[in-house]
Write a protein that binds this DNA or RNA. Structure first.
Lengths: 163, 163
DNA sequence: CGGTCTTTGTTGAATGATCAACTACTATCA
DNA sequence: TGATAGTAGTTGATCATTCAACAAAGACCG
């Protein structure tokens, strides 16, 4: 792009690498715990959480994708697998015949409720409890700034929307 | 496990969710940029970086796996694909006949050098430049604490080492 | 109405990651 | 030396994710 690259300073590079490592560390630990103790593969937990918090434990696919930062394609596959487990089912949307509504089943809610304590404990072990309350506060502010920055433009929106 | 779950406080949950979002945001953006501009799929960049910084631009597979926080299996597959591109080649280790040494080729180094400026720019856009210098410093300290905590035990070491 | 554009969601192929099993070699110890 | 255990790395099956293409329905406009 430009001929002059603003390289990272030593401190910036150090922070970047530590940040990458920290994220890997936290997510590897939480994923491992969830799969081991609840058989919920990775990000499916988040889908269940968002559904559980929605009005009738149901959301339009697009809404759910936005909330979970899943692409539509990914969500479609994921919901198909959750449906196989009986944790979610698809309903037609009454107001928009294109639409599909993902509905959390009682089994799905039960699975989520059973998984939650272990997951929360792991989040504490991996993140919250290794930081001081002040650091937790700082991390919240920092994360908000990053999210607000939109990661510098391309938010990985969805299929075929680059360029 | 235990009957008493220490749930997250509102602030803690808020921070946790923001942190998850922030990480997704940053890594989605950096991955997208790298693939788009350099055709380097996701974490391969990190492998190339570690090799480029090693003594003869070469590392034992196990060393490389540790540095990149890859499982041995994942690394083996990844190096196989990098080898197909001509960016890395495998040599036998002279001192340990089990060992393999991954050697960065000149083409690999050139690909890395070509990709670096765009990647650095994206890291700035996604992370560094949306934070104040003080926040960058704080994030470094926080990340170090998280890494030191080892994510609460299970460090996702490798194959068949759970339980 | 009829045409075009956009949105919604799915599908299948291709790629990447994980998991369990395996070979081959080294290390330890009797 | 021989037995046993541990380490290095690979492989193939399985599953998750991405990408491009697609069908079906709404939205807009003449």
């Amino acid at each position: 792009m430009n001929t002059t690259t603003r390289w990272l300073t030593a401190q910036e590079q150090h922070t970047w690498r530590l940040f990458v490592q920290a994220c890997q560390s936290v997510f590897a630990a939480t994923d491992t715990q969830l799969v081991r103790d609840s058989g919920i593969p990775h990000g499916y937990y988040e889908i269940l959480v968002h559904l559980s918090e929605a009005p009738c434990r149901a959301l339009r696919m697009t809404e759910l994708a936005r909330a979970s930062t899943y692409s539509k394609s990914r969500l479609s596959h994921a919901v198909a697998r959750l449906e196989e487990r009986g944790w979610v089912l698809r309903r037609d949307c009454p107001t928009d015949r294109r639409g599909q509504i993902a509905q959390l089943t009682d089994e799905g809610y039960a699975a989520l409720a059973a998984a939650a304590p272990g997951h929360v404990a792991q989040v504490r072990k991996s993140l919250i409890d290794v930081l001081t309350p002040e650091q937790v506060r700082q991390l919240g502010v920092i994360s908000a700034a990053i999210v607000a920055g939109g990661a510098g433009g391309s938010l990985a929106c969805d299929d075929a929307e680059l360029d």
